[in-house]
Design a protein around this nucleic acid. Sequence first.
DNA 1: CTAACTACCTTGCATTGTCAAGTACTAAAT
DNA 2: ATTTAGTACTTGACAATGCAAGGTAGTTAG
Lengths: 107, 107
Amino acid sequence: MNSQFKKGVLELIVLVSVNKKDMYGYELVLEVSKVVDVNEGTIYPLLKRLTNENYFETYLMESTEGPSRKYYKITVLGQSRLKELKDAWKEFSDSVNNFIKESDKDE
Amino acid sequence: MNSQFKKGVLELIVLVSVNKKDMYGYELVLEVSKVVDVNEGTIYPLLKRLTNENYFETYLMESTEGPSRKYYKITVLGQSRLKELKDAWKEFSDSVNNFIKESDKDE
DNA sequence: CTAACTACCTTGCATTGTCAAGTACTAAAT
DNA sequence: ATTTAGTACTTGACAATGCAAGGTAGTTAG
């Protein structure tokens, strides 16, 4: 897969995921990987950034299957960021798809 | 617009454009800008890279409206790269759109 | 007890795009 | 004749994002 396409979209995918339900980092790696290949070294720094920007809050919970889990919960600010990004993505991908379709036509 | 979305897609848009007809750099800046905001400092280095990778060939032509224009012409290799990128983009954007749609549903 | 899995985090690197500036040619306005 | 605006290309310092590879540590199964 073309790794460049991912740029910026990962933030959207993570926001969409955490918006559905609180999630911890490792879980997100698995969830996000269903859509696009992604690696821990990408997700953890991203989660930190999104938390710093107040899109997420965090809390710890013990697990019976390993070390404690740090859960991420979306904030109100995070939800507005999500909407913003979702709209931007839609506009962007539509416009790219349109451009490709147009040029396929006249051949 | 989210500038990160652009990463990797610009190459696709440029390939699509030059595949339609030979174009010079400045013309491409204008053409590509119809789809995504872009500036000269992005396009020219990209054209150089794509030429180095043998996706494009170039030739010069004089202009009555300014300095000579360097035209870019797609190669056979460039066409296969175009197909590759187009398919990858389709798969990628479909999968992202699907993921967003799925999560919109259960609300 | 040790391997395997869960869970988290960090550092250095590569790639790609941005900004800002500079060069140079042509044509129209002053 | 000189300035201005538009066309056209180039470069270098910079920022953002993702990846690879490594580290720490708790839990469970063999």
